[in-house]
């Protein structure tokens, strides 16, 4: 275990001041479910952990008009227990339920999941699917970055030293929209995602698809919406053949982006199946 200092921040201002202190290389600590594992595995890049897990503003889940606000220190357990999120962000709630096990869900946070930026993260595909924006504070001020742009690669983000993700916002989906999260792991709990799919969609009054979002996890080195698949859905009537075509297209997009890797032979079949299943759950099986 590496040696490092620890300090707890009581407010966002205090946290930003501590993180921005040039005398220390500091790292935000929330649930510690990633940071502590890294510290156990070997030397760490930070000298001090700034604990942001108990900052009240960072624990808020709220609706502001047509926007949902989730504090970065909100845990998966808090996400899955939130009535508001159950109604407006089903895919995020389902992802929270599938994270690790109860201990991880009680400690791990959404902000930590984005900051750690693992390719197999369960919290990030729903955020990207929902077009969420991360709000970042530092000594210079505040700025907003779409989550899909903040995460630049496996364990890579656009965050700079001194930055703190304070919260996420995303627009409330159109009326009648539904979203799902499907996870494929090697066991039923405490499993790293082999693949996941966050998807959302809505039908218009004419029965055709008016809204479609798709963000697979563990598929690309850089998480993003599969707009190539979304566009082929818009304006179409929902039916099984369309979803199979969308699944095939998703696999094609993945392969174009990653080339053929050791896992492609498996993932192209599995992603096809998961995408088709997710779309079917959204558009054909409203009870599911």
């Amino acid at each position: 275990m590496s040696a490092f200092d620890y300090v707890r921040a009581g407010s966002i201002e205090e946290a930003v001041a501590l993180l921005g202190d040039p005398q220390w290389v500091s790292q935000p600590l929330a649930g510690g479910t990633d940071v502590m594992v890294q510290a156990r595995h070997g030397p760490v890049h930070f000298q001090r952990l700034v604990d942001v897990s108990r900052i009240p503003e960072m624990k808020v889940i709220a609706r502001h008009g047509d926007e949902i606000y989730i504090g970065a220190a909100v845990t998966y357990t808090e996400i899955m227990e939130s009535r508001l999120l159950q109604e407006t962000a089903t895919c995020l709630v389902e992802a929270a339920r599938l994270v690790g096990g109860p201990a991880i869900a009680n400690a791990g946070t959404l902000g930590g999941n984005v900051g750690n930026a693992a390719a197999c993260a369960d919290g990030t595909p729903p955020l990207v699917c929902l077009d969420a924006v991360a709000h970042v504070r530092n000594l210079a001020g505040q700025h907003a970055v779409p989550v899909a742009e903040l995460i630049t690669g496996p364990h890579q983000t656009a965050l700079q030293r001194g930055d703190l993700i304070t919260h996420f916002t995303f627009p409330v989906a159109p009326a009648g929209a539904r979203s799902v999260f499907l996870k494929l792991g090697r066991r039923n709990a405490q499993a790293i995602s082999r693949l996941s799919v966050a998807a959302a969609g809505a039908l218009g009054g004419n029965g055709r698809i008016t809204f479609a979002r798709l963000a697979p996890g563990s598929a690309l080195s850089r998480l993003r919406r599969f707009t190539e698949v979304e566009t082929m859905l818009i304006g179409e009537e929902p039916h099984q053949a369309l979803f199979e075509a969308a699944g095939a297209q998703a696999s094609h997009v993945m392969e174009l982006a990653t080339g053929r890797r050791w896992s492609t032979e498996y993932k192209e079949i599995a992603l096809h199946g998961l995408v088709a299943r997710a779309l079917r759950a959204i558009f054909l099986n409203p009870e599911n």
Partner: peptide, 30 residues
């Protein structure tokens, strides 16, 4: 009978790595 063997009939292996084993050799005892 993992995911790959059940779906494809054969296993797939990620690139070999020495890291985990060597880290294990030197892992600190709590």
């Amino acid at each position: 009978m993992n995911l790959e063997r059940v779906l494809l009939g054969h296993d797939l292996q990620p690139p070999a790595s020495r890291d985990a084993a060597i880290r294990g050799v030197w892992m600190e005892t709590r």
